[in-house]
Amino acid sequence: MGTAVEGTVRGMFTCEVCDLSSPFTYYGQKPPNTRAIVLLEECFVMKDPFSPDKERFLILGSKCSLCNKDVCVGTDCSLFYTKRFCLPCVRQHLDQFPQQVQSELAKKKPVQKTS
């Protein structure tokens, strides 16, 4: 079916917490063809592989605003609260996060790397 319009792969994104890795096609705050949409952090982005629409993007992850590690957007690895924090950093500074975030995290067991 037709020609596949995939952006050129810029590199491999690998989450430093869970090891998830996938090629990304864009890094920054303004993925192509997103018009009014702006990302509030610099993200590793790829074309959404689960959408037939070529212009749907998928944010894979970004850098933790504290430790600067690449981390995926999975809720076991990081959270976004005005900025990106990897969960290890969140745990370190847990008291600075609002109650909602704290109780949310309390329910979670510490993540171990899936191998």
Partner: peptide, 23 residues
């Protein structure tokens, strides 16, 4: 809390959890 101030907003809002904005 320790030395680092993350400068997070005091009042929780689910909006702060979203890393996208629409202009």
């Amino acid at each position: 809390s320790q030395a680092v101030d993350l400068g997070l907003p005091k009042e929780y809002d689910a909006r702060y959890r979203i890393n996208v904005s629409v202009c």
